[in-house]
């Protein structure tokens, strides 16, 4: 979207630097040659992205108007799209994905912001230890941590054992087999994996805020809360926007965790759109056409949510 190109534009155009030293004629020749050379540096990458991103997207669009099993596909017009709106499993997966999104992303971002503000305190001791510890979950692969969480949150897993020992609960919670708790487990897992990641972004942005702003605010009598909401949040707005968009895109594509923690169960209560696409294509009798239609639903959701976030964050770039 716009964030990234907007940041990428400036920089010094390369021609400008050499120009002064060259005569007009040799300059033009050099520029013509540079144009050819420049494009040749880019060609492989551009072709690969066209071949493995844009071309498949066009194929998916064409596929979304076809139906049939396996390779026997025929054009059916908008049938798949009509089916989509009446498909209870699809609607469940959209609902699940949106629940993950509106619960998990804000919780994680607030938690990450809070931790980064605590860690940014100059007087704090053991800062390096805390930072490394909280960032550590990012080292694990999605599959590995998912399997670990599956067992931590099992019916007789260590979570239940500890909660019972602490007398916080009287009987084990069905973390993985109850529709409500299964969603909670997925949300806890994702939050564990990604909070430290987001925190590092905020921390480095915080370190760039000039301390004199806070000094001035203190002199004006602003308390810690006012400083946080009036200085920290506005200053971090671009990075909060960036992390919320990447988290949103990530959550809309959620697959590895759900596949490995709950396998989408109980009774589709945790299944995500990505997993439904996978099941439609490779688990049930393959229906590539309908799967492609569902995949366009994710694309549309990503666009919609990104636009909403830009609007909410205001258009201050």
């Amino acid at each position: 979207m716009n964030v990234i190109p907007a940041k990428a534009t400036p920089g010094l155009p390369a021609e400008k630097q050499g120009k002064g030293r060259q005569t007009a004629a040799s300059g033009r020749k050099l520029r013509a040659r540079n144009a050819v050379v420049g494009w040749s540096f880019i060609t492989v990458a551009a072709l690969m992205i066209v071949l493995f991103y844009f071309y498949p997207m066009i194929q998916a669009l064409l596929l979304s108007f076809q139906s049939g099993t396996g390779a026997n596909l025929s054009y059916v017009g908008l049938d798949n799209y009509a089916r989509l709106l009446k498909d209870p499993t699809f609607l469940t997966t959209v609902k699940n994905t949106v629940v993950y999104l509106i619960v998990q992303v804000p919780v994680m971002i607030i938690l990450a912001l809070f931790l980064s503000v605590l860690l940014n305190n100059k007087a704090l001791k053991f800062k390096g230890f805390f930072r490394t510890a909280i960032f550590l979950p990012c080292v694990t692969s999605l599959v590995a941590y998912s399997v670990i969480f599956k067992y931590l949150f099992g019916q007789d897993g260590i979570m239940n054992i500890m909660l019972m020992k602490l007398s916080l609960i009287s009987e084990p919670i069905s973390w993985l087999t109850d529709p409500f708790w299964a969603k909670i487990t997925i949300i806890i897992a994702i939050t564990w994996r990604w909070t430290g990641y987001n925190m590092i972004f905020y921390l480095s942005a915080l370190q760039n805020i000039d301390n004199s702003i806070y000094e001035a605010a203190k002199i004006d009598g602003a308390n810690a809360f006012q400083q946080f909401f009036k200085i920290t949040i506005p200053m971090l707005k671009p990075i909060i926007l960036f992390t919320s968009i990447t988290s949103t895109i990530g959550t809309l594509q959620l697959f590895d965790e759900v596949m490995n923690i709950t396998a989408g169960g109980p009774a589709n209560a945790t299944m995500t759109i990505s997993q439904y696409i996978y099941n439609l294509s490779f688990k049930y009798t393959p229906d590539f056409g309908y799967a492609a239609t569902v995949s366009y639903a994710i694309v549309i959701m990503i666009v919609i949510f990104s636009i909403i976030q830009f609007r909410v964050a205001g258009d201050k770039k």
């Binding site: 991103y53 498949p56 594509q253 590539f288 995949s295 694309v299 990503i302």
Partner: peptide, 11 residues
């Protein structure tokens, strides 16, 4: 912006 889930079937 393209989710991998949308690419996997055509790929």
């Amino acid at each position: 912006m393209i989710p991998f889930a949308a690419l996997m079937v055509p790929l």
